[in-house]
Amino acid sequence: MSEKSSMQIFVNGKPMPLPTEAMSVLALVEHMQLTGKRIAIERNGDIVPRSQFAEVQLQANDTLEIVGAVGGG
């Protein structure tokens, strides 16, 4: 494994190694096969608006919450 593949973030409470260090939120969404899904993302406590997915670059140890709507009362 090269140095470049060692970056890790946390998604929904679990560690996730990333294939590359330079990765946008949009690239992560594609990497996770969530493209086209209705989701919302919080990064380190702040909302990342969908319109900014391409611009926001992930940093090592970022903590992300990725959520969707499910049945509930």
Partner: peptide
């Protein structure tokens, strides 16, 4: 109609149906 907000499942069944397919937000006030 009320809905809950939950973490998406990671790495499993990317194509499983979602509540929104059955209750489109265009038809209901969420």
């Amino acid at each position: 109609v009320t809905v809950a907000i939950r973490r998406t499942n990671i790495g499993q069944n990317a194509n499983e149906p979602s509540l929104l397919d059955y209750l489109p937000p265009s038809e209901f006030t969420y």
